[in-house]
Design a protein around this nucleic acid. Structure first.
Lengths: 147, 147
DNA sequence: CCAATGTCAGCATAACTGACATCA
DNA sequence: CTGATGTCAGTTGTGCTGACATTG
């Protein structure tokens, strides 16, 4: 990461721009501030519910870290943890009703942020940005998973 | 942040793609792995040298945190801390020769990553991506500075 | 027996707050 | 005196490693 003209830094700064807008919108609507890790768990949760160890793999952190984060989200009332009926010892993390409302609010905020951006830089620009970001950039140079 | 189609998450994932490539390239060339905070200090350092408290303002963390990070970078031999001749008590953080070499290596890696990406998705795409990211997106919803 | 999972405990990192001395 | 800076000390949050019991 170095001075202004490098793509990596641009991507990070634009992510921060987006994240800042999202947080502002959600806190203005009365939703609790989530930490980075909490947002990640939230983002990687399936609608049918997901196992903590599976979340850990997707996010790239240890099972222990996920369990802690999930406990925090549970305390906020956004997710609930239930035994997995299809397995013995395993558990399932699923959204509560409040969690679903929060997701809906976030989706609404996304739409508004993107519309604002389109008004400012042009909707063709935004569409082209999205399609470029969605293109196949090739494999990620991943660090080895913990655990 | 939610499922695949949202811009914020796309931006984050592409930043991670870029960051992963950069790290792989630099470690392959024998440079030490830097933490996120260390990279930030590195990225916000002027070529003429910068005061720790000024770095803190730019990055958005406390002076104390920056002093700690700078001490780590100094131990790695990448920066040096000298008294500011223009001021009494103040100090200046500046790149060492090794630090400059590291910056040069990073710039070379950027160029290569971007060229690889252009080969894969097209150079017009990359140019358009850059110009969209550089456009005026409007003010960031910043959190109040610490300290 | 083995692999995956959840869980308990302790440690390391990195930021924070608070307090204070110094200097323009 | 005041404001900015550097610095010392203590606290907190978050993820890590290690160890272990349970389940299929």
């Amino acid at each position: 990461m170095n001075k202004g003209e490098n793509l990596g830094r641009l991507l990070l700064e634009r992510f921060r721009w987006f994240d800042g807008r999202l947080r502002a919108s959600l806190t203005a609507a009365g939703w609790p501030e989530l930490t980075y890790s909490q947002s990640l768990v939230f983002a990687y949760l399936d609608s049918e519910g997901t196992r903590p160890s599976e979340l850990a793999r997707r996010i790239g952190v240890t099972r222990q870290a996920v369990h802690q984060t999930v406990a925090d989200l549970e305390a906020l009332g956004l997710v609930r943890v239930e035994p997995d009926p299809s397995h013995g010892r395993a558990k399932i993390v699923a959204l509560t009703d409040a969690g679903r409302d929060n997701v809906r609010a976030a989706l609404g905020a996304f739409a508004k942020i993107e519309a604002d951006l389109a008004r400012r830089i042009g909707s063709e620009e935004v569409a082209s940005l999205r399609s470029t970001l969605e293109a196949d950039w090739g494999p990620v140079e991943a660090s080895p998973p913990p655990d």
